[in-house]
Nucleic acid binder design. Structure first.
Lengths: 402, 402
DNA sequence: TTCTTTTATTGACAGTGGAAAATAAGGGCC
DNA sequence: GGCCCTTATTTTCCACTGTCAATAAAAGAA
């Protein structure tokens, strides 16, 4: 994070106000009373926190769509009717960009992190300068679109894989981009004229899940991404784990089978060396003799029932399941969310993941709830936007709570 | 934890006071200024927090032994000399008991968790009733000794392996004791007339390390215990990880080698099935043909250079190192502390642990500082006392910070 | 002695969030 | 319609925390 030009300010003067806002943000329309209960505050405190937020337009009264539709909580019909408070998504927009080694994906979201617009662009030159120019170009496209609405764009998030120091806004080391110590937040803030948050891609996705997804309200959960790499974001004690040295959640290089295939990290039988896209494709090529070039083809082959292909996926599923069980054994999260591009093949893994998990989870660690959810292509960029939203909300009051 | 008879009260009325006290407790004699810096408070706040603690005798002024001995911080010789504040260990005593399946170990410590007295007693009947009686007996021995000093005994901690709900003071399930849902804190409080804290043994040891040991001041570290079992306590974001289902840090059942020996947990090649005491002894018996019955003999054999024995330890070291690397990869702790009875054999596996760790740690996770420290036999009981001290200090103000 | 420098303390003060009481807003009931 | 009951929200104090800026204290140096 960096300070910035023409910043939109967020009137959460007190910790309680930020607390209230994030509670309403994560848990949809709520009554003030309920908000207080969830945030551990008195109703009076909620009223006081809500007022300036209403005045500034960040919150609005009256339930959103689907308010009375769900008859879930049969309205008490007795006593003064509650008035619902919800976040006004229209109030501000955010841009999120995910940079991979060869592509940029950008989204424009509202304050509720709903995607308004998504764009992709190839990244032809990954050196910091040209990459920054490409990001800036893409962001300007988003800004042009945003200008049509009345909502200001209040922040830009950039997600990059590797070792990222979010607090300083510096990319310490990103293997795919081949960057070292790039002060990306500062550069991008200058180039785009927006407050910029830079974070590791998996952590950003975890933030999105924690605030807007299946992790909402949980103080301990893990997010596992399956795709080109196998990643893992962890939330412990309500905060995303960053690791003392900037690295955490490296589930991809857990060794699952010392007798397994070699991995680029130098070991054998890492989860990624068995269940990463490249590993699966290579292995399927080897087993079936078919010349598959990407995972789509590999999945197709398995679905067609080509001999041996399913087994490759089964083995991958087992590796993933074991990795998840390891996380569960160590941290005892309430829930594990499996996501990622690799989920296209989920029907090929699911059974093995679940089984390997159940077998390897020790004792009540097995009670952990394992969920899957699809990962649209723009999800990584949405994670970046979520990080920007988080910065926007928590920046001004010196607090740092997630 | 349970409320209690004739409780000694601790005058930490405000969060800041508890913060100040624990800072001084963990970091030895400190000036008020320095205390404020570390605790993130203004000097004024420190002065105000310190006063009632001094008045009540929990803190005293003037450095302890070794005050000026260390010339570390060359005294400025200019300006008003700082006056050091430290915890008065004599002010209160605590009892700690560790219960294994066949033995009780008890210690009496002072407020700084220094062991005053240690006692062991066999546990002949592990049913809750008789075990409680045995604990009570042992505690009364400690109390008798404590009566000779003027310090009151302000709490009792009991450490038990398995699933323990510290907040409720209930042992949910302890395999070694074969207990289920025993409200131990309440029972022991009644029987001993002391406030009782019950916690999982590894977590208690972790607390001791966090406040009084090599983890002092670190917000992220792991403690690995090597012995009959292989355990792991985790501190993330400055708090001990408890897990949503009461289980966390189960490093002992990480599968290190699917082709390895069977484990009682049902899997093959768990760390514990390779590096636990029983596994090592069994394997050494198998390899050498010698009839060894305990780890002392096994260690002796390896030291004598009996063929094959060293290799068993080497393999154990590798398994442990891999387990530690897994923790480092997932959480990125600042430090890992290896401890345990198994350290008697440390020279036999040190090299392999270090090597396996370095090999399996991914990227900068390898920068994690791996330390070893001996574990005196009464250390587990001391952990229980540390838990009691923690309860004592943090109970009254409704906070729950570790 | 007086000055300088650093540490500790004091007292005024600005916010925070809580408790309790007051108020608002329905639906039923008579 | 008026009154009562219930629950939600708001108001009105108010206690309390920790900060700020000023001041005292405790040396050594000049």
């Amino acid at each position: 994070m960096r300070s910035t030009p023409h910043a939109e300010t967020f009137p959460a003067h007190t910790p309680a106000a930020a607390q209230v806002f994030t509670t309403v943000l994560s848990h949809g329309p709520l009554t003030r009373l309920e908000t207080g209960r969830r945030a551990g505050l008195s109703p009076a405190a909620v009223t006081k926190a809500v007022r300036p937020l209403l005045a500034a337009g960040y919150l609005v009264e009256g339930g959103g769509p689907g308010e009375a539709a769900e008859g879930e909580e049969a309205r008490p019909a007795l006593g003064r009717p509650a008035s619902l408070v919800r976040v006004n998504g229209e109030r501000a927009l955010f841009a999120g960009v995910k940079a991979t080694g060869d592509e940029l994906i950008a989204v424009l979201t509202d304050l509720c992190c709903r995607v308004r617009l998504a764009r992709r662009a190839p990244l032809r030159d990954r050196a910091p300068g040209p990459a920054l120019a490409a990001v800036t170009g893409l962001v300007h496209e988003l800004l042009a679109h945003a200008a049509e609405s009345h909502a200001p764009v209040a922040g830009l998030g950039i997600a990059v894989s590797g070792d990222v120091d979010r607090a300083e806004g510096v990319v310490r080391y990103s293997p795919f981009l081949d960057w070292r110590d790039v002060p990306l937040a500062e550069l991008a803030a200058t180039a785009c004229g927006l407050p910029v948050t830079v974070d590791n891609d998996v952590r950003a996705l975890t933030v999105a899940e924690q605030w807007f997804g299946a992790g909402a309200g949980l103080s301990d959960f893990a997010l596992v991404t399956v795709g080109a790499g196998i990643g893992c974001g962890l939330v412990v004690h309500g905060r995303v784990v960053a690791g003392a040295h900037g690295v955490a959640g490296e589930i991809g290089h857990l060794v699952v089978d010392p007798a397994g295939p070699p991995c680029h990290c130098g070991n054998h039988g890492c989860v990624e060396a068995i269940a990463g896209d490249a590993a699966i494709v290579a292995r399927i090529r080897e087993v079936t003799g078919c010349h598959v070039v990407d995972s789509a083809e590999a999945v197709a082959l398995a679905h067609q029932g080509v001999p041996g292909a399913r087994e490759v996926y089964a083995r991958a599923g087992e590796a993933i399941g074991r990795g998840i069980a390891t996380v569960a054994n160590l941290l005892g999260p309430e829930r594990v969310i499996i996501s990622g591009e690799g989920l296209a093949a989920y029907d090929l893994f699911a059974e093995q993941i679940r089984q390997a998990f159940t077998t390897a989870a020790f004792g009540s660690a097995a009670r952990c709830d394992v969920q899957t959810r699809p990962l649209p292509f723009e999800e990584w960029a949405r994670g970046a936007a979520a990080a920007a939203i988080q910065t926007f909300i928590t920046q001004h009051p010196s607090s740092g709570k997630g």
